[in-house]
Amino acid sequence: MDKITIVGCGPGDAKFMTQAGVTAASQADFLIGNKRLLELINGAKGEKIDTGVNIEKTVECIGRKRKEGKVALLVSGDPGLFSISRQVTQKFGYKACHVIPGISSIQLAFAKLGISWDDALIISAHAADPEVDEALAAQNRKIAVLLGRNESVKWIDGFIKRIGGDRGLFVCENLGLENERFFETTADKIGALDLASRTIVLLIDKELVN
């Protein structure tokens, strides 16, 4: 049985996909992922299967189709960062998977500012109540928060007030796409913003960006 290939597709525009990822997806018998990612692969010989963002449905589909041929799972960003690839490797085992990295939205966000991110604190606010050590966060000079839902804006508003500090706030919305927005805002305004689910907010010590 062939390995499951997990392809990091970047932020959602074909120009950010790696050649290795495109080649692997094009050679698969079955391409599994959401509609937006499937549309990135042109001329693929395999059957495209839209499983949306339903993790359980996706894992079940992989289990069935890998018995019939080569499977490529398309995931947004990089498979190693808040990705469904975690559930897939846990289900089938890492030896059954071949992971092809992709460009993450975190990389793009920090690239906008031209600063490194290897020492940044990365927080996913997709959950209703993110588990964050706020005392530790208050000491960090670089924080990236992935929103993912409407309630995340309210959460980050309170989070910013609780950790304090003199920080620049940068909103990175739909990075890499045609409707991309990147702008600086302030702590007193962020709670009123209407932001897309594909948004990252960077909280950066002002000494690093002045």
Score class of each variant (00 low, 15 high):
residue 190 I to W: 07
residue 2 D to T: 12
residue 112 K to M: 07
residue 58 T to K: 12
residue 92 F to S: 02
residue 185 T to P: 07
residue 182 F to T: 04
residue 46 G to E: 06
residue 79 P to W: 06
residue 118 D to S: 15
residue 99 V to P: 02
residue 180 E to I: 10
residue 195 L to D: 07
residue 7 V to Y: 04
residue 23 T to S: 09
residue 147 L to D: 05
residue 172 C to T: 06
residue 116 S to E: 12
residue 5 T to W: 01
residue 6 I to H: 03
residue 103 I to F: 00
residue 165 G to V: 04
residue 29 D to E: 15
residue 45 K to T: 14
residue 59 V to T: 15
residue 164 G to Q: 10
residue 181 R to K: 15
residue 67 K to F: 00
residue 164 G to M: 11
residue 199 T to G: 03
residue 9 C to Y: 06
residue 119 D to T: 15
residue 48 K to R: 11
residue 199 T to W: 01
residue 176 G to S: 01
residue 25 A to C: 09
residue 193 L to F: 09
residue 16 F to A: 03
residue 38 L to F: 04
residue 171 V to T: 07
residue 71 V to W: 07
residue 60 E to V: 05
residue 133 D to T: 12
residue 67 K to W: 01
residue 31 L to G: 12
residue 134 E to K: 15
residue 94 Y to N: 12
residue 165 G to R: 05
residue 183 F to K: 09
residue 184 E to D: 04
residue 70 K to S: 14
residue 164 G to S: 12
residue 61 C to H: 00
residue 150 N to E: 11
residue 42 N to G: 11
residue 197 S to F: 08
residue 118 D to M: 10
residue 89 T to L: 04
residue 196 A to I: 05
residue 105 S to Y: 10
residue 108 L to T: 05
residue 93 G to H: 11
residue 20 A to M: 15
residue 185 T to M: 06
residue 36 R to P: 02
residue 45 K to G: 15
residue 67 K to C: 02
residue 16 F to Y: 15
residue 194 D to W: 00
residue 197 S to W: 02
residue 181 R to M: 03
residue 158 G to V: 08
residue 87 Q to H: 11
residue 33 G to F: 01
residue 120 A to E: 07
residue 209 V to R: 04
residue 122 I to H: 03
residue 183 F to R: 13
residue 177 L to F: 02
residue 207 E to K: 15
residue 191 G to S: 07
residue 28 A to W: 10
residue 200 I to W: 04
residue 52 G to C: 06
residue 188 D to H: 10
residue 71 V to A: 13
residue 51 T to V: 12
residue 76 S to I: 08
residue 119 D to Y: 01
residue 60 E to D: 12
residue 208 L to C: 06
residue 72 A to Y: 08
residue 76 S to G: 08
residue 187 A to S: 15
residue 61 C to N: 08
residue 204 I to C: 13
residue 94 Y to G: 08
